[in-house]
Design a protein around this nucleic acid. Structure first.
Length: 578
DNA sequence: GCCGTTTTCGGCCCGACTGTTTTCAGTCG
């Protein structure tokens, strides 16, 4: 074994194995079992490779004896024998073909058996030569669809997902546009955007209207809409100028709750929800809940009614990921999630002293206008590598400037801080006597991402153990969709933070969301107090706090789990230095 | 292949759409 496999790498291997089994014609339930296992591995907050090494992989839901053995084989030898056998028999190109719209595993396999199509290039030639139509179930339309998809640049990879911040801005604009229309009764954003997921594949909007046709018409004329794909009484599908697909569904007001619940998802949540209640003779769909025992058809105007009919407490959208929320809702053990209104201060932001755009005073006034009681000014230290370098002498002058702004403000604290770089050896940029003059110290890794996992973990633990470090900023360094987390043993980081009372940050920048929901949940359960920071580089991005709050809600956190739901005096008492 | 208020076997969510069919399988969300 060269190195410890990441959960995402193990999950990818099982995702691939599922597709291989699917192409091989395995029974569907077996394929689904592998996909469920892959998802479970991906979302595990602890290292599955380590669990497997200790023979504990079966503790994860969806992992039984067979899959646990395969995980162990993968971790020990780097490959799964069953997958190797399948790969020897099934051309690698078939996996890519299954990602072409309309071509699933069954039809891909049929094309391979009948026409020996084993790559996207083979597929294109067969469609051009009108040979696809010689296969049972394929016609001229299928050839046309294949060629359209390939011409549109389909390369067999799933489509890139859009960052939540972009999708949400667009979704909110569309929803407002629809609500303004006289025919609309109710309009809500649904789907992954409503669950505040990290990224969105598309946007889902659900509505009830006095005149559905008029609302659909209005929808297709909204400025953000570029091209209408389909439209009818029940809704429409359209492409925005940004290239994001939007689905609008319209339903009778009496079923609005069913529709909203259905299209908010997640698919996993709905699947598990339905499986759970079907045993009691209850069937859930986007139109109603039906009861076998009484024959009753319950249509619900609100989601609350849907969950109540199923014997559950209302489940907030952020929790609907099939991570235990169904059992908790049935037994009355759901947490009371924190809200944006609980946040009382922001302890990580930048000014023109480093790479920010606004002054200390502008940032402080903007934070006060948001209703906060305090803000910490935390510019980058000198070895950050770019932006203006705050040398020790410059930091002393910055502290004086911060004290002056603080003195000029009423009922608001402006705290002198830094976001100091954690050097490869685990030391931080400023000397202890200078750090001690500050009210607040964020320590973050910004350089030398490529050092090994052990070295990186030691580096971070050293920073955590520094008595003047209050919080570790963006603990994994990932940029969503652009940069993987650096190799670090978060289990050890979390253990050290819990032991020293050092906070761990949920960085609210929508590109970061770091810690993510899964690890923030693990950290909080391990006794770490979480801090949510905007990392704003200008007054307007203080508003990114909402993405951090969303991550915390997805991590099942209550106000008590989060440090900056407290006053500054209460918060500082929780710190390592007391 | 997994799982259990149906517990070691027999189940495993729901509905719409599409293109191709004469009654539906496959795909998608």
């Amino acid at each position: 074994m060269a190195r410890t496999l990441k959960n995402s790498e193990i999950a990818d291997a099982f995702e691939e194995l599922a597709t291989l089994y699917e192409l091989d014609g395995a029974v569907l339930y077996r394929v689904v079992a592998y996909r469920t296992a892959a998802k479970s591995i991906r979302e595990s907050g602890v290292s599955v490779a380590q669990m497997a090494a200790q023979g504990q992989a079966e503790q994860l839901s969806g992992i039984g004896k067979t899959i646990a053995e395969k995980i162990a084989a993968l971790v020990e030898t780097g490959s799964i024998p069953a997958a190797d056998k399948l790969k020897a028999r099934i051309p690698a190109g078939l996996v890519a073909i299954t990602n072409i719209p309309g071509l699933g595993p069954k039809r891909t396999r049929l094309l391979y058996e009948e026409l020996r199509i084993e790559s996207l290039e083979d597929l294109r030639r067969a469609a051009e030569d009108q040979r696809l139509r010689t296969v049972q179930g394929f016609g001229a339309k299928a050839e046309e669809k294949v060629l359209t998809a390939l011409a549109a640049g389909a390369d067999g990879r799933p489509r890139i997902r859009t960052l939540l911040s972009s999708a949400l801005a667009l979704g909110e604009e569309l929803v407002e546009g629809l609500r303004d229309h006289e025919a609309s009764l109710r309009v809500e954003l649904a789907g992954s955007a409503r669950r505040w997921a990290e990224t969105c594949k598309d946007l889902d909007i659900v509505a009830a209207a006095t005149d559905p046709a008029a609302l659909v018409e209005a929808f297709t004329r909204l400025p953000a809409i570029d091209e209408v794909v389909t439209s009818g009484e029940a809704g429409a599908k359209a492409l925005t100028h940004r290239g994001l697909t939007v689905d609008l569904r319209i339903v009778a007001q009496e079923s609005f709750g069913n529709l909203l619940q259905h299209f908010t998802g997640s698919a996993r949540h709905n699947e598990a929800l339905r499986t759970k209640v079907v045993k009691r003779g209850l069937h859930v769909s986007e139109y109603s809940v039906t009861d076998d025992a009484t024959g009753a058809v319950h249509r619900c105007t609100t989601e609350e009614e849907v969950y109540e009919l199923l014997g559950m407490a209302y489940i907030e959208p952020e929790l609907r990921e099939n991570r235990g929320e169904l059992d908790a809702a049935s037994s009355g053990e759901l947490p009371e999630l924190l809200t944006l209104a609980d946040i009382r201060g922001d302890l990580h932001c930048h000014t023109t002293a480093s790479d920010g755009r606004d002054s200390i005073e502008q940032m402080a006034r903007a934070a006060q206008e948001r209703g906060y009681g305090y803000v910490a000014i935390t510019d980058h230290s000198a070895t950050h590598g770019f932006g203006n370098h705050v040398t020790p002498d410059e930091l002393k002058r910055q502290i004086e400037r911060i004290r002056a702004v603080d003195a000029a403000m009423e009922d608001f604290r402006v705290l002198a801080g830094t976001e100091t770089n954690v050097l490869p050896d685990g030391s931080v940029d400023y000397k202890d006597d200078l750090l001690a003059e500050l009210d607040w110290v964020v320590a973050s890794v910004h350089t030398s991402f490529g050092i090994g996992e052990n070295e990186m973990t030691d580096r971070m633990v050293a920073a955590i153990e520094h008595p003047l470090v209050d919080v570790i900023g963006h603990p994994t360094g990932r940029l969503i969709g652009r940069r993987e987390p650096y190799a670090v043993d978060l289990g050890r980081v979390i253990e050290a933070a819990a032991r020293t009372h050092t906070f761990l940050e949920i960085n609210a920048n929508p590109n970061r969301r770091d810690l993510d929901d899964v690890h923030a949940r693990v950290a909080a359960r391990a006794g770490v107090t979480i801090l949510i920071d905007s990392d704003a580089h200008g007054t307007e991005t203080l508003a990114n706090m909402r993405f951090g709050v969303a991550t915390a809600r997805r991590a099942w956190l209550s106000a008590a789990d989060v440090a900056n739901t407290r006053s500054w005096d209460d918060l500082r008492a929780l710190r390592p230095r007391g």
